[in-house]
Simulated assay, not measured.
Amino acid sequence: MSEAHISDMATRRIAGIVAPTVEAMGYELVRVMMTGGRRPTLQIMAERADGSGMGVDDCAEISRTISAVLDVEDPIAGEYTLEVSSPGIDRPLTRLKDFRRYAGFEARVDMAAPIDGRKRFSGRLRGVDDADRVLVETEPGVQEALPFEGIARAKLVLTDELVAASAPAGGADGE
């Protein structure tokens, strides 16, 4: 899957460099994306491995640590801006486990190449089958099986149901 505007190979290389560090810190790498022109932006999206919420301090800690790793490895020629963020509620879906985890929620999936003349599929996620195809119920009783490797971009759709499911336990006041 690729959302990168700069080569997939470069973003895969960067992901390979930063993932072990991010994981050792107790986070999971969600997405690595390079965008921009003269001064590109390296976007690193991560979430806590334990599933708890991320805050600004988490992003700052990841940013400081990853900056040091990238300074040593130097995978990007020239100057760039590093952005670290959490996925947010209407998050991108980048891993098979994301499609399993968010089964039952509305999503939009864009394919790299058309399937039966269509590149965009919207509907309720129904998980993943044994052949690593993402299952999307596009209308009642109609389910599409989309090859995971052919997905260009996918994200959850912001709905009241998703917001309610994403609310911290104990209501708006937190604990």
Rank of each mutant, 00 (worst) to 15 (best):
T21F: 06
A24W: 08
D132C: 04
A167F: 01
I151G: 08
L156A: 05
S67M: 01
G37H: 07
T35L: 12
V30P: 00
T65E: 14
A152C: 06
G53W: 04
I66Q: 10
R95D: 06
I14R: 05
M34C: 14
P75C: 10
T81G: 08
R38F: 04
G171R: 08
G117P: 00
A167S: 13
V163N: 00
A68E: 15
I151A: 12
L29N: 01
S63N: 12
S85M: 05
G174H: 09
D98H: 15
L96R: 07
P140V: 02
T81I: 11
I89L: 12
D50R: 09
I89E: 08
A60R: 10
R12W: 02
I44W: 01
K155L: 12
F148R: 05
A131D: 10
M1G: 11
G141S: 00
A165I: 11
G26K: 06
L42W: 02
P92W: 00
A10V: 09
F99L: 04
R91P: 03
T159I: 06
I6S: 13
L146F: 08
I62W: 05
V134S: 12
A103L: 07
G171Q: 06
T41W: 00
G123N: 13
G36C: 01
E23K: 02
A167H: 02
F148L: 15
M25S: 10
M1H: 08
E139Y: 06
E73D: 14
E106Y: 03
C59S: 09
E83M: 07
A172V: 11
P140N: 06
V163Q: 00
A49R: 03
Y102L: 12
V69E: 14
V163Y: 04
K97T: 13
P75Y: 01
M54P: 00
Q43N: 11
D130I: 01
A77L: 11
R13M: 00
T11Y: 05
L96C: 10
L42Q: 08
S2L: 14
F105C: 07
L82A: 15
